[in-house]
């Protein structure tokens, strides 16, 4: 019996208490919470940059992690609608239910783009709240971070001093980086590009780039041969400079168009961990800007 208990203990090793337990749905919010929380938080990230954030399963491991979380950070705008609601409900954790202080939705703190005029699934995977990929604009990271640090202080007042000082340091560094990225990214202004999925609205809004076509016929619908040929035919008029896809996207559609229309492919990290270089939030944008500039040289 004693041995059985020991085995059980080993299997269900209970993690060390004290630190604020954060459950982040996507890597960018996990990284942001880590920047603010430092060693005062224990961050679990539900998905990786190699996974399509629209298509995640409500895995048992996610329910187990949500069970003990003090703070759930989601993007909102229906990005996680396919898996987060059952995870919240099944977790039996009252702190992280929608409407509670322990549930934080990043999209509520930024100005949303691409809000559809009509909601119809004939238009593909449309989000009523607007385009949910808000993390591709570094100015949004600042807005979300400001709201997040307040929320973390509210939930865990004991660590407020630490959260505040780390946030001050991070936001100062971030502002400096913003100036640097904007200077470096100046040549990208007005550059026409083709993307795989409408995932970059905020990035283009920030850098002033122009999206002249998408490989997906409708948001969330896999590219078809007919649509790809149409996009290729349009390139003679729109003259895009590159075709952009995220790491998690299938490589084939972009490769096809690249070969057909003699366009360079740019694979962007999309979120923290999407490329070997994008190790943290700062590196994510360093790498994104550098990769975008490459075809212009």
């Amino acid at each position: 019996m004693k041995r059985l208990l020991l085995v059980l203990l080993a299997v269900f090793a209970i993690p060390a208490a004290a630190a604020l337990k954060v459950f982040a749905t996507v890597p960018e919010w996990g990284a942001l919470a880590q920047e603010i929380g430092g060693d005062q938080v224990q961050v679990f990230t539900a998905t990786t940059a190699l996974q399509d954030p629209h298509r995640i399963d409500a895995r048992p491991s996610l329910i187990a992690r949500a069970r003990s979380a003090d703070l759930l950070i989601a993007t909102g705008a229906e990005l996680e609608v396919g898996w987060l609601p059952p995870v919240q409900r099944e977790s039996g954790n009252s702190r992280i239910q929608s409407g509670q202080a322990g549930y934080f939705e990043a999209a509520q703190y930024v100005a949303m783009l691409d809000i559809p005029a009509r909601l119809d699934r004939a238009d593909g995977d449309v989000h009523a709240g607007g385009n949910p990929h808000i993390q591709t604009d570094p100015r949004n990271i600042l807005k979300v971070g400001e709201a997040l640090v307040q929320r973390m202080k509210q939930i865990d007042p004991a660590a407020a001093v630490g959260y505040d000082s780390r946030w001050r340091a991070f936001s100062e560094r971030w502002r400096a980086s913003l100036a640097r990225w904007e200077k470096a990214g100046a040549p990208l202004k007005g550059v026409p590009v083709i993307t795989q999925h409408k995932a970059w609205a905020y990035l283009f809004d920030w850098l002033g780039m122009r999206e002249v076509g998408t490989l997906e016929p409708k948001p969330g619908v896999e590219p078809t041969v007919a649509h790809l040929s149409q996009v290729r035919d349009q390139t003679t008029r729109s003259r895009p400079r590159m075709v952009i896809r995220a790491t998690y996207n299938s490589a084939r559609p972009a490769e096809w168009l690249s070969a057909e229309a003699k366009l360079p492919i740019v694979v962007l990290p999309f979120t923290v961990g999407g490329t070997p270089e994008a190790k943290d939030l700062t590196a994510l944008f360093d790498d994104t800007v550098a990769r975008l500039l490459k075809p212009l040289k």
Partner: peptide, 12 residues
Amino acid sequence: VKWVAPTETFLE
């Protein structure tokens, strides 16, 4: 009535 254990391995 369902109960989820406070462990990293899912147990319900």
